[in-house]
Amino acid sequence: MKTNAKKILFIGCGSMGEAILSSCLKNGLYSPENILVAEIDSKKRADIALAYGVRAMSPEEAGRGDNSVGAVIAAIKPREAESIIPLLKNTDFQMLITIMAGVSCSYFTDRLGKIPVLRVMPNMCIKVSKSVSGLFANENLNNSPLKNELMAEAEKIFSASGAVITVKNEDALNRVTAISGSGPAYAAYFVEALENAAAGLGFSADDAALLSLKTVEGTLAYLSETGESALELRKKVTSPGGTTEAAIQVYEENKLKETVSASCRAAYERARALGNKK
């Protein structure tokens, strides 16, 4: 994969930002000398510079330096959005990529003018290069003469850390949040419940964790590698009158599918409400 000769600026380098930075380097998308990091935490700056060989500086220093970059990745907490506006005003960039949940594209265009903004909703699995990231390009990015080049670059960055889907409207990112953004917690909750069930059947905590995690891990690998649907696999495992059918019957009696749908709807509505506060 060709290394990008343009510079990229990370504003904030917490767990998500560092995961993206690490993936960019590991996959040869950028060389260390073309990665800049603006990070408020001095210890974090030192750790990032030492670990990756990139230039890490304070936001104030970043605002005084060579401020011509291809893309800016804003990887900070949503409540900190206002704090990066001065740095963005002093930076010459082609595209702002923000992974801040609930902070709309208009939040930035209202303050910075008609800039190209790409909102991205990854999930925690980006730390192990297994994320699903939803991408939404604002009108300014869609109308940019550099649209194809910029979108291709963004897709490279996030596909290096997992799967990517592009959505047509900003509200769709709220739906992405409800499914894949929060999804790792749903999956972890099920593993947790399975562990509790195993412990209730007399297994030790270690054995309960092993049985539960490896069963789910193996199931996901099977689905991914065979291309079978979840429904097809469930039917294969569920023999009439057997143990699996007895368990599935309990799920159906307790309306598990309806509960999952309701929980995702609640997450979606909450994402919309948080976005409306920005």
Rank of each mutant, 00 (worst) to 15 (best):
R111W: 05
A56L: 06
A71V: 07
A178P: 15
L173G: 10
I126E: 00
L210N: 04
L25E: 06
A197E: 08
A137I: 07
N148G: 15
A19F: 01
E39F: 04
E228A: 03
S159M: 13
V117Q: 01
K7N: 04
L29Y: 09
L220D: 02
E33S: 04
A160S: 15
I76C: 02
K77W: 07
S182D: 06
N27D: 15
V37G: 01
A187N: 00
S23A: 04
T166M: 10
S131C: 00
L96V: 00
P122K: 01
I48E: 06
L274S: 06
I84F: 02
K257N: 07
S182N: 10
I11V: 02
L210Y: 04
A81Y: 11
K44G: 00
F203S: 09
L9E: 09
A246K: 11
L118D: 12
G200S: 05
Y52S: 12
V37Y: 01
E139L: 12
A273M: 07
D207P: 01
P59A: 03
C105Q: 11
P86D: 00
T244E: 03
P184E: 07
V191Q: 07
T215K: 12
S42R: 15
A199W: 12
S129H: 13
A267G: 04
K2S: 09
G134V: 01
A5Q: 07
S22V: 13
S263F: 02
E39W: 01
C24I: 02
P240I: 12
V69T: 14
V164K: 11
M57D: 01
R265H: 14
